[in-house]
């Protein structure tokens, strides 16, 4: 069982300094920040490396950071074999919110990524079924953005906004 700091050191050894940073808030969990382009390679490494073995993706959350004008994805990983957890984070600018899909690595990401697209408008490259999941296909906007304004009418029905 490794702590997040040790995992960060281990990952850095494999991939080099470039594109990684380790940070945490005043309270709670710490996370490894990864550059968007590398998330797929890093994920694959974390899943398959004998010292990592992160066989499940517990949670994938899309977040909108209005101050930085960025969108973020947080991946909470867990290993049932080595009983260790780690959080990865990806931040992308809001004008170009493209993140490679990790659906091929953890199948569970399929619906989570669709939800993140639906709710905050992240775009996952190479996702096999990149569609809205909770809202209707022709809904406007992404509700969990901080500047979201609800549309007045949906197909002629008032939304009560």
């Amino acid at each position: 069982m490794m702590q997040p700091e040790e995992i960060f050191e281990y990952v850095k050894e494999e991939f080099g300094e470039e594109g990684f940073s380790f940070s945490s808030g005043d309270i709670g969990d710490s996370w490894i920040q990864v550059e968007a382009g590398m998330i797929k390679t890093v994920s694959k490494f974390l899943r398959d490396d004998p010292k990592m073995r992160f066989n499940t993706l517990m949670c994938l959350s899309g977040v909108h950071y209005p101050k930085e004008e960025e969108l973020g994805v947080t991946y909470n990983l867990h290993s049932t074999e080595l009983k260790q957890t780690v959080a990865l984070k990806v931040r992308v600018p809001i004008e170009n919110p493209n993140v490679p899909s990790i659906e091929a690595i953890w199948k569970t990401a399929d619906w989570h990524e669709r939800e993140a697209y639906d709710m905050v408008g992240l775009i996952f490259e190479d996702h096999p079924n990149h569609k809205r999941i909770l809202l209707p296909d022709d809904w406007e906007g992404h509700p969990l953005r901080k500047d979201y304004v609800q549309q007045d009418f949906y197909r002629g029905i008032t939304t009560g906004a």
């Binding site: 945490s24 808030g25 309270i27 709670g28 517990m58 949670c59 959350s61 909470n76």
Partner: peptide, 23 residues
């Protein structure tokens, strides 16, 4: 709460319920 984030998981009858909260 102070600034930070947390992922907390508990075992509900249906499985792992996780709350990812950013403060």
């Amino acid at each position: 709460p102070k600034e930070g984030e947390i992922y907390v998981r508990t075992e509900t009858p249906r499985g792992e319920l996780g709350y990812y909260i950013i403060s």
